[in-house]
Nucleic acid binder design. Structure first.
Length: 493
RNA sequence: CGGGGUGUAGCGUAGCCCGGUAUCGCGCCACAUUUGGGAUGUGGAGGUCGUAGGUUCGAAUCCUGCCACCCCGACCA
């Protein structure tokens, strides 16, 4: 049992905030709205980065880096883009400080005003497309498949650790193509990459879909997304992939000579996932005892805790522990041996539970005598005495890790299934939304007016038009007008 | 930006209404006994009470300004 971690059922958001801090993932910083990602939390992010980066490279992308600052004039070149981001931009106006003449301290030097203000990037489309103009002349320069790992700043009114912070870390892919089809294929491919990453590594089932016009990225012709369900019945957008059409090519005059000798605008995409994925990971799987990490993203998959009295016993136990550790490492399993004598075993048990380590092994004198170890699983909190002769320990642990990874996924999958409700009337819609929550699958007439109205009345938004939806005719839940299929509504983070 | 709330030791808090130099728990340090689910005892260290001013013999406490943070809205990955 974790000491004093709030219960999910009592106060979900308090539970979340406390868990993030207690599990050493992140904390609020001295800067309003900005977080410090602590080493344990950052190492989970690094695992995510490593896998995603590998997947991006497998699909032909390479990394590059573009500037943090964007000249103000760039941002305004694509009209709907600037309209979408203008309200949340940090702006650099000066480049120097000086001592105040009245001795009151350091002030901004009014003589050091920038000719043109610089925007701290909220996203990099504009600075990147201004660069692509120089990189692309011919169809031979296409496709251009670039990703960057970066930080961005969006001046949000209210922030929450990982879910919405003023500064956040992310990757943003920006690609350029010769044809609309190629760009669209890329957009869909990257959504699929995100979905695969979420399901395979985060053990997080997601719905793949398209955003409605209202929810579309500012400057995109089409936005694809993956949507996940959190334990409190709220949806979380976990990743987006945008088909930019020729919007940015036109804004930045990026044309290429075709094979046939013509001159055409380039087609673009952009796609990103952020440290928000950390929030998704935490909220999807963790329980009242703390974090539950999928083995594929855990900073270490196994922790070994020695049980002993006195140095002689520790020495004997450690010999066994190191043997096991070596074997696990050889099998590619990450292990930590916690032989600190500054904390007691019970304390360590609770600590690693809080931090979500998938498997804990305890070894004591009794085990040495019996040829056993104690294996405890974080996902279902069960323990077993394992006889070392029955199976090589690395095989045993590998099997368990797979079981845990799968178990966490199917638990989340079943939860999402339970939390997805088909409704056919407005009353039913409101009732489910206020009571049970979750995804609501309902008919919608396809107009922004209806979507807005529903949002105003209930705070529910259309999370996406699922790609795998059945084509079926029906009547809109709100307006009663004809509908061509169901969409997913939910309250969202 | 609108509504509500809070600033006291590393963290969480009592004291404030009714002014007299700060309470308790966790954590920290030392020693001893402990170690298979967050040990116990004894001793100890640690505080410009967010900040600037005012009232007063005297302010954590009363008054005024400012700052920061949290929660609820509008905005958003």
């Amino acid at each position: 049992m974790s000491k004093g971690l709030p219960k999910r059922s009592e106060d979900y958001s308090l539970w979340y905030n406390e868990l993030v801090k207690r599990a050493d993932l992140a904390e609020n910083s001295a800067v309003r709205g900005c977080m410090v990602i602590k080493p344990y939390g950052y190492s989970i992010w690094e695992k995510m980065q490593a896998e995603l980066d590998r997947m991006f490279k497998e699909t032909g992308h390479t990394n590059a880096y573009f500037p943090l600052f964007i000249p103000k004039s760039f941002l305004s070149k694509e009209a709907s883009h600037v309209a979408g981001f203008a309200k949340e931009c940090a702006v650099v106006t000066h480049y120097r400080l000086k001592n105040a003449e009245d001795g009151s301290g350091i002030i901004v030097d009014p003589d050091a005003k920038l000719e043109e203000e610089l925007i701290v990037r909220p996203t990099s489309e504009t600075v990147i497309w201004s660069t692509y103009k120089n990189w692309i002349q011919s169809y031979r320069d296409l496709p251009l498949l670039v990703n960057q790992w970066a930080n961005v700043v969006r001046w949000e009114m209210r922030t929450r650790l990982f879910l919405r912070t003023t500064e956040f870390l992310w990757q943003e892919g920006h690609t350029a193509h010769a044809t609309a089809k190629e760009a669209m294929d890329e957009t869909v491919q990257m959504m699929n990459v995100y979905a695969q990453f979420a399901e395979e590594f985060m053990a997080l089932p997601v719905v793949k879909g398209m955003k409605t016009a209202n929810e579309r990225f500012a400057g995109a012709d089409e936005t694809f997304c993956i949507e996940a369900m959190m334990q409190d019945g709220k949806a979380l957008q976990a990743g987006t992939s945008h088909f930019l059409g020729q919007n940015f090519a036109k804004a930045f005059e990026v044309k290429f000579a075709t094979k046939e000798g013509g001159l055409e605008y380039v087609w673009g995409t952009s796609w990103g996932v952020s440290t928000r994925l950390m929030g998704a990971l935490i909220m999807a799987h963790s329980d009242d005892n703390g974090l539950v990490l999928p083995p594929k993203l855990a900073p270490f998959q196994v922790v070994i805790v020695p049980i002993y009295r006195g140095e002689a016993e520790l020495e004997a136990v450690s010999v066994k522990a190191r043997e096991i550790m070596a074997e696990l490492k050889k099998a590619g399993i990450s292990v930590k041996y916690d032989d600190r004598d500054t904390q007691k075993p019970g304390w360590k048990f609770a600590e690693y539970e809080l931090k979500g380590v998938p498997i804990r092994i305890a070894i004591g004198p009794r085990d040495l005598e019996n040829g056993t170890i104690e294996i405890a699983r974080r996902d279902n909190l069960t323990k077993e005495q394992f006889e070392l002769v029955s199976l090589p320990i690395s095989e045993k642990i590998a099997i368990l890790l797979d079981e845990i990874q799968e178990g966490i996924y199917s638990k989340a999958f079943n939860f999402r299934s339970e939390m997805t409700t088909e409704v056919n009337s407005w009353n039913e819609f409101k009732e489910v939304l206020e009571g049970k929550g979750g995804f609501i699958s309902a008919h919608w007439d396809g107009t922004s007016e209806t979507e807005e109205k529903i949002k105003d009345l209930t705070k529910a938004t259309i999370r996406c038009i699922p790609l795998d939806r059945k084509e079926e005719t029906g009547s809109c839940i709100y307006s009663g007008n004809p509908s061509q299929g169901r969409v997913l509504f939910a309250k969202a983070y």
